[in-house]
Computed example of a mutant assay.
Amino acid sequence: MQFGIFSVGQLAPDPRAGRMPTEHERIRAMTALAVRAEEAGLDVFATGEHHNPPYVCSSPATLLAYVAARTRRLVLSTATTLITTNDPVRVAEEYALLQHLAGGRLDLITGRGDTPDAYPWFGQDLREAPALARENYALLHRLWRETDVDWRGRSRARLDGFTSTPRPLDGVPPFVWHASVRSPQAAELAAHYGDGFFAGNLLAPVEHYARLVELYRTRYAEHGHGTPEQAIVGVGGQLFVRARSQDALSEFRPYFGRSPAYGGHWSLEECTARTPLTVGSPAEAIEKILGFREAYGHYQRQLFAVDHAGIPLRTALEQIDILGEHIVPALRRELAATRPAAAPPAPRHPAAPARPAPATPRADPSGTRPAETRTGV
Rank of each mutant, 00 (worst) to 15 (best):
Q185N: 12
G194F: 01
T165E: 15
F162I: 01
T115L: 13
V172M: 09
P120H: 03
A129K: 09
V176M: 07
L159F: 06
G196H: 05
G123Y: 09
A133P: 05
L159A: 02
T147Q: 12
P173I: 05
D125S: 12
R167M: 06
R167I: 01
P184Q: 10
E146A: 08
A187L: 06
A118D: 14
D195K: 03
Y119Q: 09
L189F: 02
R145G: 00
S180A: 15
L140H: 00
L143G: 02
E128V: 04
N136L: 07
D170R: 14
A133S: 14
T165M: 13
T147V: 11
T165S: 14
G194D: 01
Q124N: 13
A133G: 14
L139Y: 03
L139D: 00
E135D: 08
W144H: 00
A187T: 05
D150I: 03
P174T: 07
F197N: 05
A138K: 08
L189G: 07
L140Q: 03
E135R: 06
R145V: 01
F198H: 11
L126Y: 15
W121R: 14
A199M: 05
A199I: 06
F162H: 15
A179E: 09
A131T: 05
E128N: 10
F198D: 01
F162E: 01
S180C: 10
G200M: 12
Y137F: 15
A199N: 13
P120G: 10
H141N: 10
E146C: 10
H178Y: 08
A138F: 00
G171W: 02
A129G: 00
P168L: 09
D170C: 12
P174S: 06
P173T: 04
L140M: 05
Y193A: 11
S180D: 05
P168F: 09
H192Y: 15
N201I: 12
P130Q: 11
Y137W: 12
P174A: 03
T115N: 11
L143H: 03
D160K: 13
L189T: 12
E135G: 03
L132K: 03
P168I: 01
N136V: 09
R154K: 15
W121H: 13
W144F: 04
A179N: 10
W144C: 00
A118I: 12
N201V: 08
D148L: 04
G200I: 07
R152K: 13
R145K: 11
A187E: 00
R156Y: 10
W144I: 00
E188V: 13
G153C: 09
H178N: 06
Q185T: 15
V181E: 13
S183V: 13
G123M: 04
A199W: 02
D150P: 04
